[in-house]
Design a protein around this nucleic acid. Structure first.
Lengths: 261, 261
DNA sequence: TAGTGGTCTAGACCACCAT
DNA sequence: TGGTGGTCTAGACCACTAC
């Protein structure tokens, strides 16, 4: 279990009367290793989004550690939104489907708290060679194939968001306008179900910009109108970037919600 | 310890051969109660920001629970940034002073990753009666006294932020322009040190807006220039609102950084 | 009733820090 | 050397869900 450099202490630690492990310069707790094992299982597709993973006792037996150690590993994975615990039922792989946590990454809310379901209008979906900047952000070689999606989001009939979405072509093989148009629900749910790529976290750079002619026309605002520019990079397992998204938001009647702590 | 309705089970739970506690309809774990006790100690000023709190064993003895239970309580408080654990030393009350986590709530970063320390230029600090909207947000009665601070932030010489900060007058008695001007370091550090009010969390509404004449002049941009509008409400212990802040950010060369997960 | 996660305990040992 | 938080174990009981 424990594969510290310079230590080969077995299910070590407590209560046991073991050989004293050489104090390793780089100490890694057991539960971290368990965490890595479970993450591996998630990444390899051994347990797919929405599915249940083995119970704590079972995992404890498998990895030859105590239940408490498995528990701590799962606790952290649940805190990272990779797993979801449900008392009495089991522990499940988090998913962008079903959950009412569907639009976890869309932070745009209406001034009045009402919940307006939005609809997506696809403008185009085509393949091309990655521009240098996109390639850099997606960790691709320049001119590698990418997919570009352009779309509008309408809240309650009002056109509010214009998105340009860049995806690595190798991962999203077979993604076409038709399949996009047919799919109901969030993009990330589709990416997960259809392409086995799950978005774990994202990092955004937000600015206020003046609407340029093209964008202005799409969003039905005047040229120069202030828009919220949201540049997002999304990551999957192993912190590998798998999406670059540039969004322009009209923030009259809507705002970007953020909580600091 | 356990003050569940319909249950008066003593340091209950495990291993012990206690009377079976009546399954309460509203079950509250022991560690939650410990958490509440500790929070109380923080709020009452028993332990002040930067100070050390009693060790886990000591707290366990005081509350008549096991160390593990105290640990879980402290774990959650540390996750909420109310406490800071330091191995080998002890557990400390979080503070906006010292920490290199000083500007935890300022998310504006330069396009080049360099760290530019910023300077604050106070425009005014005066007392007045709360406008209806501010009163509502601060949970005050209309026309209650408030303090209004207006200031500019300069990054590397460039004027980048204009802030209007509203504080409840009752809490910030004796806050004057002189004291503000004299104080070095973040505002929240001063609020904590000088007024015993610690900001715990904040909620922001972000929009893109066109610069109005007054703001434009202060920020040295043209009227109509796109600015990031950041409306923040900050809360202290017990989720009581104690600051309303409206900021206008110039986002050329700078961006608002946000991480989603 | 059986299985799952959730709470609680008691005790051992480890890593880190101060003295 | 002694104290603090950090890890790990083993075992009990509780709450929730399903069968």
């Amino acid at each position: 279990m424990n594969s510290n450099p310079a230590t080969t202490n077995p299910p070590n630690g407590a209560g046991a009367t073991d050989v004293a492990p050489a104090p390793s310069p780089t100490f890694s707790p057991l539960y971290q290793q368990i965490k890595a094992f479970i993450t591996q299982g998630l990444e390899s597709g051994e347990w797919k989004p929405g599915e249940i993973i083995p119970s704590e006792v079972e995992l404890a037996a498998r990895y030859k550690v105590s239940q408490g150690t498995v528990r701590k590993a799962i606790d952290e994975l649940a805190a990272d939104n990779l797993l979801v615990r449900r008392q009495g039922k089991g522990t499940f792989v988090a998913t962008h489907n079903e959950d009412r946590v569907q639009f976890r990454f869309l932070r745009l809310l209406p001034d009045d708290g009402d919940v307006h379901p939005h609809v997506s209008r696809l403008l185009e979906c085509r393949r091309l060679r990655a521009p240098a900047e996109i390639a850099r952000q997606l960790d691709l070689k320049p001119a590698d194939p990418v997919v570009l999606i352009r779309r509008l989001l309408q809240f309650d009939g009002e056109t509010t968001v214009f998105d340009e979405i860049w995806l690595p072509g190798a991962v999203f093989r077979g993604l076409t306008a038709e399949r996009l148009a047919d799919y109901k629900g969030p993009l990330y749910a589709m990416f997960e179900t259809e392409f086995g790529t799950r978005m774990i976290r994202a990092s955004e750079k937000i600015r206020a910009v003046a609407a340029e002619a093209g964008v202005a026309e799409l969003l039905k605002v005047a040229e120069g109108f202030p828009l919220l520019s949201v540049e997002r990079v999304s990551y999957t397992y192993g912190d590998r970037p798998v999406e670059v998204r540039r969004g322009w938001y009209v923030t009259t009647g809507y705002y970007y919600q953020n909580d600091l702590s």
